[in-house]
């Protein structure tokens, strides 16, 4: 088992993590081999579950931490971070 990796960043799009943006994240996370997580204020959501992400309730400006359990999923992590930074292309 390799070390976990995390990236902390802010939700920039106006709508925040709504169904469509969360769905894009969940789709990316589903490609990972190990666990992918999104943390907000000590609450953790399974990034492969759209519903779980939504329960975090992340409006614009929320700080979230995306993390992977397996270093092999680094690319997934970076893709997810890029997607969040880009504001989900909104």
């Amino acid at each position: 088992m390799k070390a976990a990796q995390t990236i902390t960043l802010r939700i920039v799009n106006a709508l925040g993590l709504h169904a469509r943006s969360a769905a894009q994240l969940a789709k990316l996370a589903a490609q990972a081999k190990g666990g992918v997580w999104i943390d907000k204020n000590g609450n953790r959501a399974d990034a492969t579950s759209l519903l779980d992400i939504l329960t975090l309730a992340c409006p614009q400006g929320t700080e979230v931490t995306v993390s992977i359990d397996d270093e092999a999923d680094m690319e997934t992590l970076e893709q997810m971070a890029a997607l969040i930074r880009s504001g989900f292309g909104e």
Binding site: R20, A23, D46, S49, L50, L51, D52
Partner: peptide
Amino acid sequence: THMLLLKDKM
């Protein structure tokens, strides 16, 4: 979105 929910872990 509903398609994704069908297989959502929760």
